[in-house]
Design a protein around this nucleic acid. Sequence first.
DNA 1: GTCTATAAGCTGATAGAC
DNA 2: GTCTATCAGCTTATAGAC
Lengths: 195, 195
Amino acid sequence: MILQAAKVQFAAHGLNGARMQTIADEAGLPKANVHYYFKTKVSLYLAVLDDIIDRWNEFQDIQIDDDPAEALDRFIRSKVRFSFEDPVSSRLFASEVLQGAPHLGGYMREQLRPWVQHRTDVIQGWIDAGKMRAVDPMQLIFLIWSSTQHYAAFEPQVLSIMNKPRYEPKMQAEVSNFLSNLILTGCGLTPPEPS
Amino acid sequence: MILQAAKVQFAAHGLNGARMQTIADEAGLPKANVHYYFKTKVSLYLAVLDDIIDRWNEFQDIQIDDDPAEALDRFIRSKVRFSFEDPVSSRLFASEVLQGAPHLGGYMREQLRPWVQHRTDVIQGWIDAGKMRAVDPMQLIFLIWSSTQHYAAFEPQVLSIMNKPRYEPKMQAEVSNFLSNLILTGCGLTPPEPS
DNA sequence: GTCTATAAGCTGATAGAC
DNA sequence: GTCTATCAGCTTATAGAC
């Protein structure tokens, strides 16, 4: 699969650093075939980016009527799951932003910003209703994004410090439980039972 | 300054993606001069990496006798300061790890792992002494790293969502206060007065 | 659609004058 | 030490047979 091979290379080396030859090798094709399906390197890069944007925020909405503890717990677990199940997409997103997000500016303005705006409104509503501590809703979202994505983008560092060759199966649950417990407690909420 | 220009380019594009010509242009020198001071691209890259490793964890030690709230507050603020005052170094570190940390493996094993080991021991000591809630000390360190570094590595995303062209001066204090307050509360500690 | 061969231009690195 | 000119090899992309 060309897109998958390209995603891995672009995630690790960025647009400039990735090599069409390497992508072709990883996909098991002659380089010319890659250019048959994707005329230029940039168009391949954009195709890969489009592919991940769709699933970036696919978890269910949060609503003003939701229980804050349950909704935030779901949010956090959904993000941790994404990090562990599709770490390459997380890395590609991080790589693109590190380069200044030159190909994601439109997406951020037109899709991600309203997405965040809606969530901050809901969280502020919970705060105004006295359902949770008064914390900055936008910074809370950034905290959840950063702490969950860390295990994908910084996997080599985490593994090196834990002195392990790869994540163990229980790791995802441990991270979910830790983050949900600490963040919800930090918001003055009672964390749900660990699942 | 060659090292500074190189740091910016390597941070944004990685080792393979950065261009010696661009580095030379940004430093205001002919490309040949860069090669006079640094024989190869890799040696320049390593020089830049060495330059940031020294200051990566320069804040003062935490000790078992410290007050947990004060020590963690200092830790968090120190990391936020680093993110806002030297975001390029944070980005370069992130870029290198995204590429699999091929040039930082030794540093992580020999320096960073013992560094973390010592801190987790201290935090576990606090927990055993009943001074704070029982949370996983290593994951707590990862949480502080990820949440503080986010504002450097993901600056374009944060700014785009906040609809601002650059960080305002008060941003660093707001982030420090938010993170310190939420994380310490999450640890069952009473946050110090915001500074 | 797939593949080999190759063109056209870019990139890291050096030679050599000053 | 600094600079211009240039080389050798790499990289993207295409041409053209099958």
